[in-house]
Amino acid sequence: MLGLRLYMAQRITALLMGPFVLGHIAVMIYAIQGGLSAAEILGRTQGSVLWFLFYGLFVVAVSIHGAIGLRVIAHEWGRVQGRALDVLMWGMGLAFFALGARAVWAVTFAGVVT
């Protein structure tokens, strides 16, 4: 159900998410100190390759990590197995990625490109 590759994928994405979570929380606390408006935040994120990479990689890591975690729960608690388990994992992973990528795109390059 969980071989070496999936295990490593989940552990490596966990390692990535550690600094991402800390960075995210630090920026959230910093950003609201002076009462930043949404427009001001968007002004800093729009067109920023740095924020695109930061949250883009964060979303990729979360999608992989979360999908594998749900795979384990679905198997051990929901008795889902075989092909259905793979479909569930990939489906959830792609759904997480789509939701996250859409949001990252919206605050970085959506307004810039179109």
Binding site: M1, L2, G3, L4
Partner: peptide, 9 residues
């Protein structure tokens, strides 16, 4: 021990 039922579970 690295297979589907291995130590990583």
């Amino acid at each position: 021990v690295s297979g589907d039922g291995g130590c990583h579970n």
